[in-house]
Nucleic acid binder design. Structure first.
Lengths: 200, 200
DNA sequence: GTCTATATATAGATAGAC
DNA sequence: GTCTATCTATATATAGAC
């Protein structure tokens, strides 16, 4: 299969995603992408007239990846703890392993990076992120509810509170792992979260 | 008491702190400060020749505030749960209440903001942050250890793992609160953390 | 679809008058 | 200690040739 004409567009989105994960939306420039792909800035503006357009495309691709991943999971065959472990693993893989090697901790997740820049983002990107976060809380809450129904989880507080805790801790764990250059920090924190939910 | 000659320097550090909390180190400029204080950019360069100098001064002031706060706590009179609650309250106050009003969620903590920008910070700032984070983990771990010794906390996993979880979740909780414009998210998450540690 | 060239704005920073 | 003026670099973005 030949390289399609729109291949450049995909490469731009792919590399821009990595740049957001490492340097943030406001931390990268069209020049960074031009250098990496061996093209000129003006060519990027052809595909994405404004940086906001590119940011929106990056986040859409991110969400598409998340939803495709979830669509292929056989939830029926998993315990709640396994679902949660899979969630944590995907969260790490989508930022670390997918594009790079597993020992590279220089990335944080796209959603975490953008949430960190909340006050400096274009309005349309904020709307995307807000919608995703709403969905995200519901998704994690559904895993917890399932575990409770199966007598597998004995959580304290509300299901929503536990879901928020997991999402907050996951974002923070990737920040700390990047700072310490050690994915083991992330693994340690996420293990604690799962163990903390299990019935004693 | 008359306004001292170095008062401008303190005002610069104070407002730069707020800018880091809201827009990040790479998200603010000397112009932002000049506009706020009614001075010119060149005057800021007189006090802080480079932006890195200013960033370092901001973080030193942040650390000084933390250590002064801790020095005035009467640890002997508190339960471990109270110590932890105080930790969470200070973490929120130092970013929200101190300079502003309690319903303003547009700030995240100085340390959280800077950790989010890890890959875009000058080397000397990274060293400061790394040192602080090391101390930070030890401090939270000591609170947990104390609670365990008093049979107040029955945690799962290692003490260090629990401390990392608390620090990660706190950073993430402030990010989510800012995004949702609701400090109640932060309160909900930190309550879960305390309840999760208590012996059942 | 990619290029060269350019417009415009703003960043961090310095020199030197007051 | 603060100012005006300026330097240099880089950002986003556009016009128009190929």
């Amino acid at each position: 299969m030949a390289i399609t004409k729109t291949d450049t567009k995909e490469k731009i989105v792919s590399f821009a995603t990595q740049l957001i994960e490492t340097k943030g939306y406001n931390g990268f420039s069209y020049q960074d992408i031009a250098d990496e792909l061996g093209i000129k800035k003006a060519s990027i503006h052809y595909h994405f007239p404004s940086k906001e357009d590119l940011g929106i495309a990056v986040f859409e691709a991110f969400m598409k990846g998340v939803h495709e991943h979830i669509a292929q999971i056989d939830f029926e065959s998993l315990t709640a703890a396994e679902k949660l472990a899979g969630y944590f693993q995907y969260h790490a893989e989508v930022t670390l392993v997918k594009n790079h090697d597993a020992s590279d901790c220089s990335h944080i997740s796209c959603i975490g990076a953008l949430t960190s820049e909340w006050n400096n983002l274009p309005e349309k990107m904020r709307e995307q992120i807000d919608n995703f976060n709403n969905w995200h809380v519901g998704f994690v809450a559904s895993i917890i509810s399932d575990g409770v129904a199966k007598k597998e989880f004995c959580h304290v507080g509300s299901v929503e509170g536990q879901a928020l805790l997991i999402i907050a801790a996951t974002k923070g764990a990737l920040l700390l792992s990047r700072e310490k250059t050690s994915i083991e920090i992330y693994n340690q924190i996420t293990r604690q979260l799962i163990e903390g939910l299990k019935c004693k």
